[in-house]
């Protein structure tokens, strides 16, 4: 299956890319890892007239900690995250996702930023970014701006990005003391999108109570969801089996899945409960182990 014809631009600098996006607004699309866009083009579900390939812009491969955030450049591949010692040691939530997103070969090209821009509610990184409270850094020839990821997802396959904008990086909060995260996904096989995925990030205060909590849900709504009420139940409490169970039930109530070939609404809702419970337990164990 072959894409419809298009024009191709190999952008060697951000300015070059932005220039094309501005002059061909509405017709041009950014090509990052291509692991979502090219399959869509092969099925002719996407037929952009111009592809702006940002892969030659080495600057965007950036992955480093600075100030209070981890900077994840637009070309940081899933596999780079998967094998990064920094991620493995300090960002268990990202590490978890990077082992279950797509398959190992697709991970060599696919990017976290591309994944967020694609805004597939079944994208694993969307829910993780929500749980972690990540920030999206956006630029165009007109302006620079940043958005909390909560404000970034608008609808299925739709984001707050304007047609001439590029996401240059995502800033992921640095781990606080006594914090950890976890991501759990059930999928039918490797390379499948989630039946359900749950991301949890939490930090304890010095007294052992939960100071901050984030819960993101994957594939159970029109966009990646945050289980806000469930999060609220956690904050200020001491971790306990009963608390986690209650929170898991609440997360399930906040999910809004639809029935499809991956499973019925009921099943998915119950899986939100099961996975949230397990992810909370795992994150808490990780805090204790550290």
């Amino acid at each position: 299956m072959f894409p419809a014809p298009f024009e191709y631009v190999s952008a060697h600098s951000l300015d070059e890319a932005l220039e094309v996006l501005e002059s061909r607004a509405g017709e041009a699309k950014v090509l990052a890892g291509g692991q979502s866009l090219i399959p869509m083009m092969r099925f002719r579900l996407a037929q952009p007239q111009v592809l702006v390939d940002i892969n030659p812009i080495k600057l965007l491969e950036d992955l480093h900690e600075q100030d209070d955030a981890l900077h994840i450049g637009a070309l940081a591949r899933h596999a780079t995250l998967e094998f990064s010692p920094l991620i493995q040691q300090r960002y268990p939530l990202i590490a978890d996702v990077s082992r279950v997103v797509a398959d190992p070969t697709v991970r060599n090209l696919g990017t976290l930023v591309g994944s967020l821009c694609h805004a597939d509610p079944a994208g694993d990184f969307g829910s993780a970014a929500l749980a972690a409270g990540a920030e999206v850094i956006i630029t165009s020839s007109r302006q620079h701006r940043s958005l909390p990821v909560d404000a970034f997802f608008l609808d299925t396959f739709s984001t707050a990005l304007e047609e001439d904008e590029i996401v240059t990086e995502v800033r992921w909060p640095k781990p606080k003391p006594r914090s950890a995260g976890a991501y759990l996904k059930i999928e039918r096989k490797v390379g499948d999108f989630a039946i359900v995925g749950t991301a949890v990030q939490m930090a304890l205060d010095e007294g052992g109570r939960i100071a901050e909590a984030g819960i993101g849900l994957c594939a159970v709504g029109p966009i990646s969801l945050r289980a806000k009420q469930a999060e609220r139940l956690l904050v200020g409490q001491s971790p306990s089996a009963e608390l986690f169970q209650e929170v898991a039930r609440q997360a399930a109530r906040e999910s809004d899945p639809t029935s499809d070939t991956r499973g019925s609404k009921e099943y998915k809702q119950d899986m939100v409960r099961v996975l949230t419970l397990r992810a909370l337990q795992r994150a808490y164990q990780r805090i204790q182990a550290a």
Partner: peptide, 29 residues
Amino acid sequence: DTTSCGACTVLLDGKTAIKSCTVFAPQVD
């Protein structure tokens, strides 16, 4: 046609396995 099978896998720059059905030829210039 869905980047699922890996029969098309080749090595990019000596180390990275990629599915060559999901990359455009000009990208490897």
